[in-house]
């Protein structure tokens, strides 16, 4: 079986095993000292796949996104490229500072939301559906322009939203009653069933996950973790997910963007 169902089963079983095997209580001493990307915990083979653009399947979506970037869309019949020109220049660094402050709503807006805003407002087109191949392709094409750049999503106007994200990160949830922090701060580097628990940095997204056999967004990843502890995942595009993204970005401040990364 492939896809989220298998993930859930494996993840759920893993958590049960972990609760027996390693003690979550008092694991505070194990708190991370240095920050590591999920990349650092992967096998050499998977790292090589990410590094090599002719072996990294995420590059297929980057190609797709480039085609969409140049395609006239909507009632305005305008392409992204007509307004933004060469993405290598205009989109450089953009993913590194998203979620960003949106003056129109005075709220944080993630990269996907920002792109869909342009579709609706500037192209007169329908928003791409969340997690659709088109939205993933354009997003990864834009994010790819920031590869290697340091994460810098620190707009002070977003402080209250970031704090909310931090609170969500520390909040226990689901039938398994675990917080993100209990896994990604307190137990990072240990094993949960077969997988290393990563520190949970958002630097690679959208990324190609071997288990998904496809590209997925950061929000898909977060929803997977929520379902993993048997809680009802927040909806795509919800304020809670954007705030979590925002907190994760500040937690990863200064780390290099990797999109499209590869993960097991």
């Amino acid at each position: 079986m492939r896809g989220p169902e298998r993930f859930l089963r494996r993840f759920g079983a893993g958590v049960a095993a972990a609760a027996l095997g390693l003690s979550f209580v008092g694991a505070d001493e194990a708190r991370r000292t240095e920050r590591r990307s999920g990349f650092d915990d992967m096998s050499r083979e998977t790292q090589a796949m990410q590094r090599d653009d002719t072996a990294n399947p995420g590059m297929l979506w980057v190609q797709e996104g480039e085609a969409l970037w140049n395609r006239k869309e909507g009632t305005a019949a305008r392409a992204c490229a007509e307004c933004h020109g060469d993405a290598a220049a205009s989109m450089r660094g953009v993913a590194a500072r998203h979620p960003a402050f949106d003056p129109a709503t005075e709220q944080p807006i993630g990269l996907e939301g920002r792109i869909n805003r342009c579709r609706q407002v500037h192209q007169g087109a329908d928003a791409f559906a969340w997690e659709s191949q088109d939205l993933l392709a354009v997003t990864v094409f834009v994010a790819h322009q920031s590869r290697g750049m340091p994460v810098a999503a620190e707009d002070p106007r977003l402080a209250p939203f970031r704090e909310n994200g931090r609170r969500l990160f520390g909040e226990r949830l689901g039938q398994l009653d675990l917080s993100c922090a209990q896994c990604h701060d307190d137990n990072a580097g240990k094993r949960l069933a077969g997988s290393v628990v990563p520190q949970g940095h958002p630097t690679g997204y959208p990324l190609y996950r071997l288990e998904w056999q496809g590209l997925g967004s950061l929000q898909r990843r977060l929803r997977n973790c929520m379902a993993g502890v048997r809680s009802e995942p927040h909806a795509y595009g919800s304020a809670a997910l954007v705030e979590l993204e925002l907190f994760l970005m500040s937690r990863a401040g200064g780390m290099a963007l990797e999109a499209p990364a590869v993960r097991p």
């Binding site: 653009d53 002719t54 072996a55 590059m59 297929l60 979506w61 190609q63 797709e64």
Partner: peptide, 8 residues
């Protein structure tokens, strides 16, 4: 058409 990556 499917996207391809070929390295030669």
């Amino acid at each position: 058409m499917a996207r391809v990556l070929i390295n030669v």
